[in-house]
């Protein structure tokens, strides 16, 4: 994976999430009050606004909620990837997150397809959670 692609600027909210991804886990915040997970990581729960949050390792399984096949890249850094599939994954635990679907055949991707996380190292610090169809 080329390194001139945009990398996340990690902050205090997101540091545990990126650290977990680096270690091969999908950790997202779980609210100790309403019991719901959320994504992206925040300092308060977007469902009930509690700050009683902890990171929870989730299953990494979910389904394609929606997607697009990029036939034009989002800038030159992504030109070599075309065509590629960017998707919103609905995790088993509820939240949706953007990611890539790793596939040799973008045309096979469809809404409702079952997927699981796979970790793709970008740099020594950053590993992205991608997904593939199961």
């Amino acid at each position: 994976m080329s390194t001139d692609k945009p990398l996340p600027v990690i902050d205090h909210d997101s540091a545990p999430y990126w650290q977990a991804a680096h270690e091969g886990r999908l950790d997202i915040p779980l609210c100790g009050d309403c019991g719901k997970h959320h994504f992206y990581p925040r300092a308060i729960c977007p469902h009930c606004h509690s700050d009683n949050l902890k990171f929870d390792t989730v299953s990494g399984r979910g389904e394609v909620h929606t997607f697009t096949i990029a036939r034009r890249p989002a800038g030159p850094a992504f030109a070599d990837d075309v065509p590629y599939v960017v998707a919103l994954i609905e995790l088993e635990e509820g939240p949706r997150m953007m990611s890539r679907i790793q596939t040799d055949d973008p045309e096979k991707v469809h809404i409702g397809a079952e997927v699981e996380v796979t970790f793709v190292k970008a740099t020594d610090e950053i590993t992205f959670p991608y997904f593939r169809m199961t």
């Binding site: 600027v9 890249p73 890539r100 970008a122 992205f128």
Partner: peptide, 14 residues
Amino acid sequence: SVLSMQHETPYGMP
């Protein structure tokens, strides 16, 4: 790729 966009921009959605 900062704040909420750190979770979208790196995936290359046009």
